[in-house]
Design a protein around this nucleic acid. Structure first.
Lengths: 208, 208, 208, 208
DNA sequence: GATGAATGAGTTTTCATTCAT
DNA sequence: CATGAATGAAAACTCATTCAT
């Protein structure tokens, strides 16, 4: 009795498998936020993901592989922001819109969970080259996109792209620095901060 | 089996004890830099410090206590910098001198070991309130000192101290942000960065 | 979804099933050689056999059952050798032909993979009675056949079959011993060994 | 209150430490005999040795290191036998005394525990080069000693030492082969075996 | 003060086996 | 027949911490 069940399930299976994988990543991200990479055991992730510890190794070769996957998708929302910016770019004044978006991002960064994970990743990158490479890559993509955007809008026309790039970097540094600061100075005046930030952004994107 | 029973050496003993303590902290800092808190075992610290693992518990109640001590002394060199600044303050132009010092600090921050430890501490602070409190305290002291300095020099005369404080914070954020960036963009043009940084500092400390 | 429901193919199916079974055993033998029983996982066997891990349980109840099957067929090539010997037995001088064949076998035994599997099986037999029984049975069959052969040829006419049996055993022991030795003394002079071996065989099969 | 307790304990401590180490090895050997290397968990060894599993890692870096230590000391009793032989060597007829000793050894080899461990080691050596090297080394030492003994006694005067070596090897192979056989043929007639063995030994050590 | 033996709980990871599909 | 998801138990190993000496 030979029955070829054909591969119709392959598609559905793949989707389900993908969902399970994401399940693990979501659970892991949550745990990492709360306890750090090294403070989070696979057992803990498995409990949070609602599956056995052993089964996690169906989807990820390693705990390290999980960390890498988290790192890879972590800057996705930053990339989204940039994309949004790029899309309604014809609306005119870059600085104004950029400032609007960044203020929002700064606000989100005040959530210790968000910033905690970023710090965790950065700290890991400082000694784990695999993680460093992943973050560098996505970071470069975002920067490049922004530089291109600035140039498309005709801002900073006298600067070489390397210099534009550095200004973008500076803005990013400031935002991430503020995020870190939010842990060292949890009660700082948010409005004042955004205000100053925007002034600096304007300086950086307008003065040659 | 020779036993000296007299107590007269309490002074010398205390000094030696203090040295041993520092020995542990130096060793621990080095290990933490390289492997992170959770990647560093007491055994490893003890080996690096040249004493037995058990003996470390004479000086520190916990591994956590070591981390706390490290956190407490971590901003010491930042405080030193501020102090130096305060001392040769009569020499005139604050911005110029500040810029000189910060450039130097930025340079040091490019060492992944230095920045790695900072990130490690920040990440830990994001979820460990004891560490957070320690970092916040030393951070506040440094900020306050700088604000006072700015005011003593008569800079930004029209601003309330809260606003001056925020500008200081901004400068600090930028520097730490650049440090973090040095991991995400290891090859970035250092001179360009310092240059821009200095321009932003000038803006922040001169424009009202 | 095509399903052929007729039972007419039972013959073909059985053959195919038998082939699949052998597929597993071949893969398993190869793995066992390289990694030992305990070092070989079902997953590994399944990969080597080109089927899913779960499916192996259609053909074998257990990992143990696979080991048993391997044990059962392991002495097959030894039995073949004996059979070959028995068949061209009329050609005269037993010792001469035996020596030719054994030399060949000794040569094969120098392959650590071949000998490794034998040792693996023997070691397992030393503590696993099921395996021990299987090996004992096939070993006895081979011995008996050889004794019969010796007697048919009229060699060692004055000896009781128990004594002939012991001489056969001795020859076998020597060959297996040499195999084991090939691991302890990998560079030993092969020709010298075969030469001596043959002399001893001659002694054992000719002197009363 | 400084008290130098001096190092008088170092000697005693070392001895005790050595004893603990041996405790582990004895326990491990026993377990390995019964269950094989890979069938024996550290937990089991630790229970047998009367200490915690973790503590075993104070004395051995690895499970592998335990196996290696077992391998290293395993041929000790064979070496002892050779030494005994060498010492009362002036008593005359080598073959006679050798036969006496080997008969005894053969008897011991019938203990499946003894032979089981030997097989386990050999099987491991077949795929683990570290173990192979250890066994090869001790094996070579024993062989060399025996060859020297044969030559000292003036036996086999016409043979090059390589040829003597091979005869020694052959005797060893036979004995180990018989040991292995004792698992495949547990009920074989022991007296007959020893008898034949001795005859073969005589042949190997007397006929040129 | 100083050591290192000792532990127990915890870590990551593997694996034989089962089962729904 | 065939897959691969899923599990639970166990494996090797690590480590913070305690304690006798």
């Amino acid at each position: 009795m030979r029955c070829r069940m054909n591969q119709s399930n392959s598609r559905a299976d793949q989707a389900k498998s993908e969902m399970r994988r994401r399940q693990v990543l979501d659970a892991a991200a949550e745990c990492f936020r709360r306890e750090g990479f090294h403070g989070t055991s696979i057992a803990r992730i498995s409990r949070a993901a609602g599956m056995s510890a052993g089964h996690i190794y169906h989807y990820f070769e390693n705990k390290e592989a999980i960390v890498e996957a988290i790192a890879a998708r972590e800057q996705v929302d930053m990339a989204d922001l940039v994309e949004k910016l790029a899309q309604d770019v014809d609306g005119g004044d870059l600085v104004a819109r950029l400032c609007r978006h960044t203020a929002e991002k700064v606000e989100r960064n005040r959530d210790p969970a968000v910033t905690g994970l970023m710090l965790e990743l950065a700290a890991e990158a400082a000694r784990n080259p695999a993680i460093a490479r992943i973050l560098q890559r996505s970071n470069r993509m975002i920067s490049d996109r922004l530089v291109e955007l600035v140039q498309r809008l005709g801002a900073l026309p006298d600067l070489r792209s390397e210099e534009i790039h550095m200004r973008i970097t500076m803005i990013g540094a400031m935002m991430q620095g503020l995020a870190m600061r939010s842990i060292l100075e949890p009660r700082e005046n948010q409005d004042l901060a955004v205000n100053l930030l925007n002034r600096v952004i304007a300086t950086l994107l307008e003065d040659t």
